[in-house]
Design a protein around this nucleic acid. Structure first.
Lengths: 233, 233
DNA sequence: TGTGATGTAAACGTCGTACTTTTTCTCGCC
DNA sequence: GGCGAGAAAAAGTACGACGTTTACATCACA
């Protein structure tokens, strides 16, 4: 996990955020700032900044005389990339992975449809290139290389959609795909059908066929959901 | 706008965030912390905490010797509710409104489909109640009352989807709907067709007809997009 | 005995200052 | 003209003091 030693602040933030999202502090539980300061051997100043950030993520709320209390899960800013990373690294990663995959299945088809209408020639080329890269690395246990192309592919689609909200989901998708490859034991080579679908999406986008791009992407999403059903409860 | 006088921190954060999202500081422009401290007449401590939060939203990056520099728009955490509020209050609110509405149009149909399969009896009842409320307030310039029901309706759908990522979009949708009612001159009463669609969605969810709920919600979304096309460039 | 006003202390909120660290600019030397 | 050493600037960190709010306990009064 990204401890990113750059600064005391980051270290404490990561540790605390991870602990909270992992449920080590129960909902409604309190943390005292100077306690944290002692525990991490930093000044209260640093802890206060960390708490402020945690508060801005709606993970905690800080009130006088009572301390820093953990908010219920439903109130967390679950779109914050850091919160996603923390939860993905924690205990309920299957649940989280499912939520995110459902989100993907809603977004990506629409994004692909938009991309078919808006993608620049460069984006079309990039798409084709990544799809071919996926084909080339889809056999022989080259999972890591395949992953790189897969992530790049979906990122291009989201960017090409021309919608900033979609585009910003690129990191989330990357996190999901990486999680799938690294944690769920992805036994062997990726599903050939999925690889083909990616190539076809690239085709459809290149040809400006929005409906087809959308439908094909929907199939990819359905496949991802089914894959989840097979592996998780 | 919510100045929320609760604490110096909030006041400075709101002011700075608003200024940055409004583009008052150019991309790559620098802000010096003690300058801000003087400008708002607060201590550097407070400013530093604000900067940390702004940094956690990816609005700025703070580096030694150079100062706090504003990041390019594409890197902002546009899912942060506060960023959304700031941008919605600022100059490029039309663009922002469009992005968010496209997002809605991708999410809500899927959410409605899930809701049809998962909604509890209580949620079904709430849905019907809100839909009826919309009908009751859809005539006679009772826009504010209508808005309340509209927001509640969509919130219930998103919650009933059982997906936390969808559920957390309730605030965003609320913001969009409120923005539409308050800023775009919503000349007169809401579109009767839209009202009917809401009633039908409640019906479909109650009957567990996922496909129909999804399709109807898609129609609502299309309507919202068209409405935007009519009013904005 | 119950209820309400009051006091107190615990926690965060704010501030000022001093020191450290990193980065970059500049100046001088080769 | 290029390169390296040093100085300066700005954020990072720390600490101590005081302010402010508020939960909680205590006490007085009915």
């Amino acid at each position: 996990m990204t401890t990113e030693g750059q600064g005391l602040h980051t270290r404490v933030l990561d540790a605390l955020g991870l602990a909270i999202t992992a449920g080590e502090y129960p909902e409604g539980g309190v943390v005292r700032t100077d306690e944290v300061a002692r525990r991490f051997d930093v000044s209260r100043t640093v802890v206060r900044e960390v708490v402020r950030v945690l508060e801005s993520m709606h993970l905690v709320v800080s009130r006088r005389r009572v301390g820093v209390t953990v908010r219920p899960t439903e109130e967390w800013n679950v779109y914050d990339p850091r919160v996603i990373r923390w939860r993905l690294a924690g205990a309920d990663r299957p649940r989280q992975l499912r939520s995110l995959t459902v989100l993907r299945s809603a977004i990506e088809p629409v994004a692909a449809g938009l991309a078919a209408r808006l993608a620049t020639p460069e984006q079309c080329a990039a798409l084709t290139e990544q799809a071919l890269g996926m084909v080339a690395t889809s056999r022989g246990g080259r999972l890591e290389e395949y992953l790189v192309h897969d992530i790049a592919f979906h990122r291009v689609v989201l960017n090409a959609s021309g919608n900033e909200m979609f585009a910003r989901l690129g990191d989330v998708v990357a996190e999901i795909l990486a999680g799938r490859t690294h944690h769920q034991v992805m036994f062997d080579d990726p599903d050939p059908a999925a690889v083909t679908l990616h190539v076809q999406v690239a085709e459809a986008v290149r040809e400006g066929d929005a409906a087809r791009a959308e439908e094909l992407t929907r199939e990819i999403a359905v496949g991802a959901l089914q894959e989840l059903d097979v592996l998780a409860p």
